[in-house]
Design a protein around this nucleic acid. Structure first.
Length: 576
RNA sequence: GCACCUGUAGCUCAGGGGACAGAGCACCGGAUUCCUAAUCCGGGUGCCGCAGGUUCGAAUCCUGCCAGGUGCACCA
């Protein structure tokens, strides 16, 4: 469909007296399918031509001749509606889907460019809660989206493996810790210690001071503290790794905050050199008031570095190493100010690439009566959510499809998919209220809905056998599809073709706007359209060419559903 | 106090300056001699938070206000 849009722009541009690119930017999708595939609103030309948009539209319609993918151009009031030659579109789209398979829809816009995505970044020694889910699944989807556009993508898990919480944990462990419990369920146990620490510190404030000192020791390289820290780190990393594997997520780099310890001095030196860092009350402060931002602390009065210094250092390191064209930080919206400050400091430090650093914020997951807090212990663990979702999926499969051989893997795909999709469907900037009922609702606009459409197609294709694709040799497929494509004239069929043809546009837009939700919505629409088709048009009992054409059509739908889900980090089982 | 984000149907939310503002959930009724009924079909809902402004045209852009959320110096 990208081609069709370009084709229209090329023909229309000289008549409208603007560039093809500008023309293309005005093209829009009409509200009803009967109005064609694209429309050009002629209001924009009214002033230039000193005529009413209606007259302009009528005149343009007369001047534009059909050809290529363009079937006809019809003036509709002030709009100029373009109709695609549907069989040609169908033949092009379906042959491409068949040929390209799991790469169908993917582009190569990003060739030669490197994009870094910083996401997930759980805190070591804290359990993985649903709060971390968002960064993880959004980041993972962006990772796959950019990859599909041809970018070289580097996924970075900036582990929260340093900071004062380790002082607290070490103190807690040394006071109350038991080796055996730690070995048994490391993260759970560390979490308990962490919660206990905060509870006891309320009555006993000197604990906080002790923790602060302990962290100082750790920073200075105290062997005992270091040994404990390393153990905590390894134990929780192993557990995170297990979760990531389970969810099918991986990273290219696990360099966490601690990695930058030795480089912080250099960052501070650089900031001083640029006149950015000033002493204030014993601490080191970057004055950002002239830029309309609150000043921020680079170094505590005890000499310890702060989060932002670490982030600055990491950004510099990453640029040195990867020469990225974009660096995305998939981090909660509560840190918006932090990133504004950080990017401004990078700019003031004289790094021109600072403008290529982008914060990709997302809303909080909250409870009805407030936010989650690790300290207070009121969190929901991701693992519990996944477990319950998968169990539910399993019991539904048991009920609906008792003969299915591998129920476990189907249940895993569906249960996991439901959770991921639920997080990706809505605009990431919005807060979400955590609610078990909606997490465990598999009807309506959900992954299972999309997966079910996919499974149904697989079922039909299985029954049909695979021979029907054998008639189409690669290379001349589009041509040989034409006679078949003429059969796809039912409204449900045409709608499916058009929607399939817009797949690449959706991928591109989702990546550009950094919103996987765009793709998720598109998949729901495609699945819905397939379901309508499924009820209106029988496939296996259709005759001759009509049957073959429908098989090819649903094969195309299957490809898009499966590729689309995969871009969101969700698998599409063949049976469920 | 200041800054940023959000406000659309009973609920959860789509909506790319453009044609009559759309889905899902929930509720009611219907469809299975037929490819998986996790499906489909039908039924009705809106001062698009409020008030101004820009524009041929605003849910969409700008300003102000209201409500909720988030942040604002030694946490990350």
């Amino acid at each position: 469909m990208l081609n069709f849009k370009k084709e229209i722009a090329k023909v229309l541009a000289p008549l409208a007296g603007m560039s093809p690119a500008e023309t293309e930017s005005y093209l829009e999708i009409p509200p009803e399918p009967e109005m064609g595939e694209y429309a050009f609103p002629c209001f924009v030309l009214a002033r230039r031509f000193k005529q009413s948009p209606k007259d302009i539209s009528a005149a343009l319609a007369r001047q534009i001749k059909p050809g290529g993918l363009l079937e006809k151009t019809i003036s509709s009031g002030p709009y100029l509606n373009f109709y695609v030659r549907r069989p040609a579109l169908a033949a092009g789209v379906l042959s491409a889907a068949l040929e390209k398979g799991e790469n169908y829809g993917f582009l190569s816009d990003g060739e030669g460019q490197t994009v870094l995505i910083d996401y997930s970044a759980p805190n070591i020694a804290k359990p993985f809660s649903v709060g971390h889910l968002r960064s993880t699944v959004i980041g993972n989807a962006l990772y796959r989206l950019y990859k599909s556009l041809g970018y070289r993508v580097v996924g970075i898990n900036h582990l929260g493996d340093w900071g004062t919480q380790f002082g607290k944990l070490i103190v807690a462990f040394q006071r109350w810790g038991e080796q055996a419990l730690l070995e048994k369920e490391p993260v759970q146990y560390l979490f308990q210690l962490y919660v206990r620490f905060h509870k006891e510190a309320e009555a006993n404030p000197e604990l906080d001071e002790e923790a602060r000192l302990k962290f100082r020791e750790l920073e200075k390289g105290d062997p005992e503290a270091l040994e404990i820290w390393q153990r905590f780190r390894k134990l929780s990393l192993d557990e995170f790794q297990r979760l990531y594997n389970f969810m099918g997520i991986s990273f290219d780099s696990y360099l966490g905050e601690s990695f930058y310890n030795d480089m912080l001095e250099e960052t501070i030196r650089l900031a001083r050199e640029k006149g950015l860092a000033k002493e204030s009350e014993g601490a080191l402060v970057a004055d950002l008031e002239p830029y309309g931002l609150p000043s921020c602390l680079l170094q505590k009065k005890d000499g310890a570095a702060l989060y932002i210094t670490r982030d600055l250092t990491a950004a510099i390191y990453r640029y040195e190493k990867y020469r990225f064209s974009k660096l995305f930080y998939v981090v909660g919206s509560e840190q918006t100010l932090h990133f504004k400050q950080m990017f401004k400091i990078l700019e003031l430090m004289g790094f021109p690439w600072a403008k290529n650093c982008v914060h990709v914020p997302f809303g909080l997951i909250r409870f009805k009566d407030g936010r989650m807090s690790t300290r207070e212990g009121n969190v929901i663990f991701l693992e519990d959510v996944l477990d319950r979702s998968i169990k539910l999926a399993h019991s539904i499969i048991q009920e609906k499809n008792p003969d299915l051989e591998d129920k476990e893997s189907a249940a895993r795909a569906v249960g996991l998919g439901a959770v991921i999709f639920g997080d990706l469907l809505n605009d990431r900037i919005k807060d979400v209220e955590f609610d078990w009922d909606s997490v465990l609702d598999f009807s309506g606009e959900t992954a299972p809905y999309v997966q079910y459409a996919h499974a149904r197609i697989c079922s039909i294709l299985r029954r049909a056998g695979t021979d029907f694709t054998g008639n189409f040799s690669p290379g001349k497929t589009a041509f040989s599809f034409l006679p078949l494509a003429e059969n796809l004239t039912a409204p449900e069929e045409e709608q499916l073709i058009i929607t399939i043809s817009r797949f690449s546009e959706q991928i591109k837009r989702a990546a550009e706007e950094l919103k996987p939700s765009i793709l998720a919505h598109y998949l729901v629409v495609l699945a819905r359209e397939f379901n309508k088709f499924y009820h209106a048009c029988p496939v296996l009992t259709a005759e001759g060419n009509s049957k073959t054409a429908r098989l090819l059509l649903i094969q195309g739908v299957r490809t898009v559903l499966s590729n689309g889900l995969s871009l969101l980090g969700i698998s599409a089982p063949e049976e469920m």
